[in-house]
């Protein structure tokens, strides 16, 4: 199926302060795709994400975006990053995700609040609208973050470790909710995660990055996700098996340190 192209990195060298982490990247992201971005800590995942978002320019090469109308990004940051000294309610927090469509100097209007409420309903927490954001549990916070990203009516959802520090029940609930919203709204999703099995289960495309070993590999899951690549970047013996039609990733117990 020929899906519309949203973002294209063309021979892009990415890095900071003219220091290249990767020298010639080509990556095409199309509408409706679910991309997982994996790699070890300090491997260059955040740099890649920021380059895609346009927050840092490529050292060389180009990043092209859809031409007919500007792309809108919905960003789901790590929930620990917020300072809990701020007494912000859940609805005020979700409204901030709407600010991408509200210019500087203009207040939040009635219509915006309606959209905020509908986003809270989509993530199944309308009853929490007046609760302080800082008082929520991990799972509730993650749902608020998702509503915050949806409030801007994005074309692309970007998630940074959405299931970090969550138990299996919370992780499954959030990922299934994300899957439902993605299908319904035909959203494109980019998700950075350390949970390889979660990425293997939900994503259809994957980017594997590690600047130290010089690995940058992007494409459909079955082509890119290999035991050999994962072993190389994580420095462990990693094997991939098919269980009930799904990929399962195993690290060797007492995995050999490479």
């Amino acid at each position: 199926m020929n899906l519309p192209l949203l973002i294209k990195l063309e021979n892009a060298a990415i890095g900071y302060d003219k220091r290249e982490f990767f020298d010639s990247i080509n990556l095409s992201i199309k509408q409706g795709e679910f991309w997982g971005i994996i790699g070890p800590n300090g491997g260059g995942k955040t740099t890649l994400l920021k380059t895609i978002l346009g927050l840092i320019p490529p050292v060389s090469g180009k990043v092209h975006y859809r031409e007919d109308e500007p792309l809108t990004f919905g960003y789901v940051p790590q929930r620990e990053k917020f300072d809990h000294i701020f007494p912000i309610s859940v609805s005020e927090f979700v409204a901030m995700g709407r600010y991408i469509r509200i210019p500087v100097g203009r207040g939040v209007k009635k219509e915006d609040w309606k959209i905020v409420m509908s986003c809270l309903e989509r993530v199944e927490i309308p009853h929490l609208k007046d609760r302080p954001f800082r008082s929520l549990s991990g799972g509730e916070k993650q749902r608020s973050l998702l509503a915050h990203a949806l409030a801007g009516e994005p074309d692309i959802l970007i998630l940074d470790e959405p299931t970090a520090s969550m138990d299996i029940k919370g992780e499954t609930a959030i990922m299934e909710l994300l899957g439902r919203i993605k299908e319904k709204d035909k959203l494109t999703v980019l998700m950075v995660s350390h949970f390889l099995n979660t990425v293997a289960r939900f994503a259809d495309h994957v980017v594997v990055v590690d600047k130290d070993s010089g690995v940058f590999s992007a494409g459909i899951m079955e082509e890119v996700f290999s035991g050999e690549t994962l072993s190389r970047i994580f420095g462990l013996d990693v094997t991939i098996e098919q269980v009930a039609g799904k990929m399962r990733i195993y690290a060797a117990v007492g995995g050999r340190d490479r």
């Binding site: 990004f73 940051p77 990053k81 600010y99 509200i102 500087v104 100097g105 939040v108």
Partner: peptide, 27 residues
């Protein structure tokens, strides 16, 4: 009064404000 929402936004979440192309430094 004019920039209330914007001052709160850049104080609470400057990273997202930058992503939304808000003039974080000016604010």
């Amino acid at each position: 009064c004019i920039f209330f929402k914007d001052f709160i936004f850049v104080s609470f979440d400057p990273e997202t404000a930058q992503l939304f192309k808000y003039p974080v430094r000016i604010l």
